[in-house]
């Protein structure tokens, strides 16, 4: 019961955060990345705790791309279907700046309540 409550909360939180993290990763990266590479960067940052399931980033990548925040190109691959490489657009960068500010504001707002009464 606790576990499924936690999972649901995590899922609700991730709704917008996955997009923010993906934009940030692509913004930091010098070269274009494809889905699996991005997933692996997330996984190495995860360190055991599974915040994102890697399978959930693909539909978000597609949605960001549809909203013109990312562009993509297809490159053939030996190991499977052709890979779709993503790159952040200028519009994506300005959205990232905006979302980063919103996230910083939200985090400090939430922390203000959580750090008080709850500290051990």
């Amino acid at each position: 019961m606790d576990d499924s409550n936690g999972r649901k909360f995590q899922k609700d939180l991730n709704g917008g955060l996955v997009g923010l993290v993906l934009l940030a990763i692509l913004n930091q990266s010098a070269e274009d990345l494809y889905g699996y590479e991005i997933a692996k960067r997330l996984a190495s940052a995860n360190e055991g705790t599974s915040i994102f399931k890697e399978g959930t980033i693909y539909p978000v990548l597609r949605a960001l791309s549809a909203a013109n925040l990312l562009t993509s190109r297809i490159v053939p691959s030996y190991s499977g279907p052709p890979r779709r490489y993503y790159r952040i657009t200028d519009q994506g960068r300005s959205v990232l700046t905006e979302w980063t500010a919103i996230w910083a504001g939200t985090r400090s707002f939430v922390d203000r309540f959580i750090d008080k009464g709850h500290s051990p």
Partner: peptide, 29 residues
């Protein structure tokens, strides 16, 4: 999308069999 990921994951672990890689998929992908 799933196929792209799974094939890349299997290719990234040449020492493991496809079944071994798939065993861990539920916790990663």
């Amino acid at each position: 999308d799933a196929e792209e990921y799974l094939r890349a994951e299997v290719a990234a672990h040449p020492d493991k069999s496809e079944a071994d890689v798939l065993e861990l998929i539920a916790s990663t992908y």
